[in-house]
Design a protein around this nucleic acid. Structure first.
Lengths: 201, 201
DNA sequence: GCCGAGATGTTGCCATTGACAACATAAGTA
DNA sequence: TACTTATGTTGTCAATGGCAACATCTCGGC
């Protein structure tokens, strides 16, 4: 009844997912530039043109990866923030740390997320990016509500924090800064963010 | 005596420079991914294999561009800092602004500078990167000396500021943030950097 | 002046790639 | 069952990066 185990079926079943999985692994191992659609097809065992049914071109595969990345990043930040009912500062630190580790554990993905040419207005990618921003912005707003942060444009402030963490991860991922400094830099960035570099009044 | 003006000479004269110039323009116009060595060769009017004499492979051309970028960025920051003998804060603002504008005027170059896989230890690229960091770190140290900044690990602090500006530029270059917000975000980032987000005292 | 070596360019070739078109097969549905 | 759509396949093309073999220029030592 059932097809012989090692006989290739005409239809793969879930090629799209298989492609994304294989692409993620390939990109992780060899970098974005090396990713080849034909390679993926070979690895999965389908013809070289099969991926085209799911991703019209190379970039759309990369976009899907990036989108997925933003989603996972958002979840991770959310989880970090929610993983304890302690004070504001510890939660902020956990959020920053979550970002930092996600970004350095997935260097190629971060590159993809940053490089995905986000069209004006809303593409799926930039919408998922907003989803990743959100928990950070929410956290800032909460800090302001609790008067642990000065009042101010929370979206802008969240953006700056996000940018800082993104920048740190970029420096580390490209070897401009030693990876062992990740946690120190993250902690220092959060401190900097909270109390500033100038001496107090 | 002299060669007829429109007769192609066997030797170009300064192919390396011509390649870098053409590559810069191409990358600026069509992005890094689209850059083709053969295209450059055609545009310059040499054979498709000529570039190989100056850049063994595509990546080394890109590395050279990145290196050049770091050099120019460093100069620009240095100039901004030196362009007035006023107080520390204004100079810091000018430095940040210089970075911001350089990075958003040269999006592809920034991508290149960030993506140039910096080898462990010192490649030409990472050495030129250090040269771009230097004026920022010097400025921080000066601020500390003048007690306008709290004492602290100036290299780390400079790195964090650099990361922040880098991150902001990345967000804007990829359309995640509207380009018109550049100056506001830069100013806000510097403020954040100086006085922090938390209420004083 | 000459000549030989190294630098710089050229031609020809190859495997790989992304993209496309035409065709084949499976799956779902009226 | 017959029609329609989704999903794969084969074949082809132009372009690319990289390599090897060959051509030409430049320059320094003699």
């Amino acid at each position: 009844m059932s097809t012989p185990p090692d006989q290739r079926q005409y239809h793969h079943g879930d090629l799209r997912t298989a492609l994304l999985t294989a692409a993620d692994r390939s990109v992780r191992a060899h970098g974005v530039a090396q990713l080849s659609l034909r390679d993926l097809a070979r690895e999965i065992g389908v013809s070289h043109a099969a991926p085209r049914r799911h991703f019209p071109d190379r970039q759309s595969l990369l976009d899907a990866l990036a989108e997925n990345g933003y989603t996972r990043l958002g979840e991770r930040i959310r989880a970090a923030v929610a993983s304890g009912d302690d004070g504001f500062a510890p939660r902020l630190r956990r959020a920053a740390s979550a970002f930092a580790h996600f970004a350095t554990e997935n260097p190629a993905l971060l590159e993809l997320m940053n490089a995905a040419k986000h069209r004006p207005g809303d593409s799926p990618v930039s919408r998922s990016a907003d989803t990743a921003f959100a928990p950070l912005v929410d956290l800032i707003r909460e800090g302001q509500d609790r008067h642990v942060l000065r009042a101010g444009p929370f979206e802008e402030i969240g953006l700056i924090l996000y940018a800082t963490m993104n920048g740190i991860a970029t420096l580390i991922n490209n070897g401009l800064v030693d990876a062992t400094r990740l946690d120190d830099l993250t902690a220092a960035a959060v401190n900097q963010f909270l109390r500033g570099a100038a001496p107090h009044g």
